[in-house]
Structure formats: C-alpha cells, structure tokens
C-alpha cells in the first residue's frame, strides 16, 4: 500500500489548528480514535457527530476538503474488504437489491467503514496541519523514548534523499531501455533494491562519522530550535 507515499502530506498554513502544539494534536487524535473505536456501531447519530466535529476542525484549519478527500485513496484496499463483508460473514441472511447478504455482516461492514474512514480523515488532518519536525517535538514531549524519536528524525530527514536516489536509479534503468513488465524482470529490480541498501547503509555510516566529528555522544544536543523551523 506504499504507492501513495511519494508526497509529503503537509499543507502549509497558519490557522489555529496549524499553530496548536503537536503533542496536543497527537493526544486529541488518539483520544478521539479510542472513543470512536470503543463506540458501539449501532449508535449511528454519534458517528455523524464525530464526522461533524472533524469537518469543523478541517474548516478551522483552512485545508481544502478536496486536499483531504484526494488523499483518502489510501483507504481503498480496506473498503474492498468491508464491501465483501456482508457476503462472507455468518448469521441470518437478508435480501438487498436481489442479493442475499448476511445481516450482521452488513452491520459489521458499516462499523468498519465508519470507524476506518473517521480514522483516515483524522490522521490526514493531523498530517496536513503538522510539520514533521513539530511532530517529533510533540512525541518527545509525550515521553517517547529519545532514541526512537532520533531514529524517526533521521528517517524523515533522509526520506527525500533516498527516494531521490531511487528515482535516479529508475531513470538510469529506463534510459537503458528497461521497463519492468513481468516477473522475469524481478532480478533487475531486486539488484536495484540491493544497491539502494548498500547506499543507504554507507550513507548512515558517513552521517554517523560526521556526527561524531561534531561531538555527538549518543544524544542530540538541544540547539533551541524554534517551532516550525525545518
């Protein structure tokens, strides 16, 4: 499901939602989703309420709703599963539009779709209104292990570098007339992945040496960086 990961989801803005500290937003997201997951799926009006609350937040953040809607394609494989649910679930059968479906299955499909969709909208709103750097600071404030935050920091920092490296390798392949069409082309792609690993690993070693030579002792120094500064 990684196909949609090419672009950063952040939508630049200065709304109150953008300015809210990241750890508050993270806790709000977690709290909201835990509530949604714990809500019995038969309480239909509550789900409308959750959706309305999220829409208000999106409106406040001034992120165009189409921006969020377009990125909801990440949910598609899961929607397929939910649509299949009424046909594979057990329980008493009923007829809808000439198809025999399972009644509890219908209800389960609704529950999955409603909760899953709310989760995707809420997460996308967080991603759209929070800079990756602020997210790290937020996680640190929430007492996330420092090592883990550092690893995430490196990952976010080098994501574009490595993705760009991969893009250059693809261009190199294609400029030599290669186009992956079927299983027989896997060895070529796998060798690219192998080369990418070696390059990433060696880059990691270079980064580590560069950090050592600047006095790194295992923890990141606090440089008093300001919020929202990349």
């Amino acid at each position: 499901m990684g196909a949609g990961h090419g672009h950063k989801l952040h939508y630049h803005g200065h709304s109150p939602i953008h300015r809210l500290p990241a750890h508050v937003k993270l806790l709000a997201l977690l709290g909201l989703m835990l509530t949604v997951v714990a809500t019995p799926r038969e309480w239909y009006p509550l789900f409308a309420g959750y959706l309305a609350a999220l829409l208000v937040v999106i409106a406040l953040s001034r992120v165009p709703p189409t921006y969020i809607a377009k990125r909801m394609v990440i949910e598609v494989p899961f929607v397929v599963f939910a649509v299949l649910m009424p046909f594979i679930a057990t329980g008493p059968r009923t007829e809808v539009l000439g198809l025999t479906v399972s009644e509890p299955g219908m209800l389960a499909a609704w529950g999955l779709l409603a909760k899953g969709t709310l989760g995707v909208i809420a997460s996308l709103t967080l991603a759209a209104t929070t800079e990756p750097r602020d997210l790290l600071t937020g996680l640190e404030k929430l007492r996330f292990p420092n090592q883990l935050v550092q690893i995430m920091g490196f990952m976010m920092r080098y994501l574009d570098v490595v993705a760009e490296e991969m893009r250059r390798m693809r261009i190199a392949r294609e400029s030599r007339g290669f186009q992956a069409r079927n299983v027989r082309h896997w060895p070529v792609l796998a060798r690219s992945a192998g080369a990418l690993f070696i390059r990433s690993y060696e880059r990691g070693e270079r980064v580590h040496l560069a950090m050592m030579s600047r006095g790194y002792t295992g923890t990141m120094p606090d440089t008093g960086r300001t919020k929202g500064h990349p």
Partner: peptide, 26 residues
C-alpha cells in the same frame, strides 16, 4: 552501539523506500 540512531534511521528509510518499489506480477 552509538551508531543506532543514524544507522537505524537510514535503514528505516531504506525499508520505507523499498515498499514504494513496485514489482509487476501479471
């Protein structure tokens, strides 16, 4: 050892990137 942060970070980036590499099936 103390290479944990940069090395794990870069390897995580590698794992993430290879998930974007599509292998055609049929």
């Amino acid at each position: 050892d103390d290479r944990t942060a940069p090395m794990a970070g870069l390897v995580a980036t590698f794992v993430f990137s290879t998930q974007m590499l599509n292998f055609p099936v049929a």
